[in-house]
Amino acid sequence: MSALIDVKGLDKAFGGVNAVEGLSFSVDAGQIYSVIGPNGAGKTTLFNLITGIYTPTKGEIHLNGESVVGMEPNKLAERGMSRTFQQMQICMNMTALENVMLGRHLQLKSNLLTTLLRLPSLLKDEEDCRDHAIELMKFVGCGEYIESDASAMSYGALKRLEIARALAADPKVILLDEPAAGLNGTETAALEALIKKIAAQGITVVLVEHDMKLVMGISNRLLVLNYGRKLAEGTPEEIRNNPDVIAAYLGG
C-alpha cells in the first residue's frame, strides 16, 4: 500500500528560527496517525505546511503520489485534504448549518446565472446540501443546534461543528488540530468515539493532540516531535517504550 501523505526532508524557518527541521514521515491511507510533542514542538506549523497555509522553506510533500508543495489550501481541498484548527475558524456571521454547508462548497456547482435568478436546479442542489449538512451535524453530535447561529453555540459544540464542516467536503484525509483541547471528560470520550467512527468510514485521520490517553487509545501510529525534529515514530506500544520519548516527557 502506498502512502497517502508522504513528507520528506521538510524545513520551515521563521526569521532564521527553524520551527520544523529535516522532517520525514508518511501516513498510510485508512490510518489514525497522531502527532505529539511538547508545546512549541512544531505540530501546528507542520499542519499548516501540509495544508498549504505555509509554504515550506525546503522539502517535499506528496499527497496520493502528487507533489503538493506550494499549492494553495483550496487546491489541496480539491484533492481531498480537510482540516480543523487549534484556534477554531468558525464563520460567526453565519448559522451553524450554513457553516457545515460551506464545507460542501466544492461539491456544489455554482453557476452565476442560476444563482442570480434562483433557478430550480439551484434549489434542488441546495436542498440536498442542506439535508447532507443536517445529517453531518447529527453525526458529530450537534443535532440540537441545527437552527442556531454559530455565535450562539458552546465551545465544545463549535469544536464538533468544525469537524462536521471538515467532513462535509467528503475528504480523503482529515487533519484535526487538538480537537480535545478545552473539552471535559465526557466530551473527550464522545470525541474519541467520533474519531473512530470517522476512521471507520475509510477517512484517514491525522491528529495533533495533547491528551495522551486519547492518543494512545485510538492511534495506529504516532510521530513524536521535539524542537521541530522527529524524536520517534511508531505504534503506540513502540512509542511508550522508546527511551528518547520517555526522557523527553519525563524531563530526564
Binding site: T51, I53, E72, P73, N74, L76, A77, E78, M81, S82, R83, F85, Q89, I90, C91, M92, N93, M94, E98, M101, L102, G103, H105, L106, S110, R165, A166, A168, A169
Partner: peptide, 18 residues
Amino acid sequence: RALRSVHGSEVAARVVGV
C-alpha cells in the same frame, strides 16, 4: 456562503476549497 465565509474566516474559507 463562500462570500460570507471570506468575511467570517478567510482561512476556513480557503481550507474548504473556496
